[in-house]
């Protein structure tokens, strides 16, 4: 197995930034190990073979890295979730503003028009406000995750 094959297997599912970090560490590790083997009298070919063998199975390392870093599929899932939430917020903004505007400027007329009690208006306003806040909190949580340096 070549170093490139080892690295491909170990990092193929990771997001690019994480894969790059792993690659840098492993490449430096193997190069240092190769130098050590060559000092001990091994040929370049033998030194390379021994240094890669010492790394062990790349699939085992991949499982470890995938526990630490976001994988490509997780990132895609996260992105689609983020998009859904962003759309929700985007769609809820005009409704929220319109509702508040109507409630404040034309409260008595609205009550008559919809035949609603004032407490019912308060409940609707409360529910929409809470939904808006929850969407904002979820969006914030995801933006913190994606900005955490793991991708």
């Amino acid at each position: 197995m070549t170093l490139e094959q080892w690295l491909y297997t170990a990092t193929q599912n990771l997001v690019p930034k994480a894969a790059q970090k792993v690659r840098e560490d492993i490449e430096f590790h193997v190069e240092t190990a190769m130098r050590r083997y060559q000092i001990e009298g091994k040929s370049e070919l033998e030194a390379t073979e021994f240094a890669i063998r010492d790394l062990g199975y790349p699939k085992v390392a991949a499982r470890g890295f995938e526990k630490t870093y976001l994988t490509k599929s997780e990132l895609n899932l996260l992105a689609s979730d983020q998009e859904t939430i962003a759309n929700k917020i985007w769609l809820s903004i005009p409704w929220f503003v319109a509702f508040i505007y109507v409630t404040i400027t034309n409260f008595s007329h609205s009550v008559e028009f919809w035949n609603l009690q004032p407490w019912q208006f308060s409940v609707f306003t409360f529910i929409i406000t809470i939904q808006f806040l929850i969407n904002g909190i979820i969006a914030r949580k995801y933006s913190l995750k994606t900005g955490s340096g793991l991708i």
Partner: peptide, 16 residues
Amino acid sequence: DFKEGTLYPTLHTLER
């Protein structure tokens, strides 16, 4: 004795 490739996931987790 351990396979050196398994060191890095642990190192990176500790850093995270």
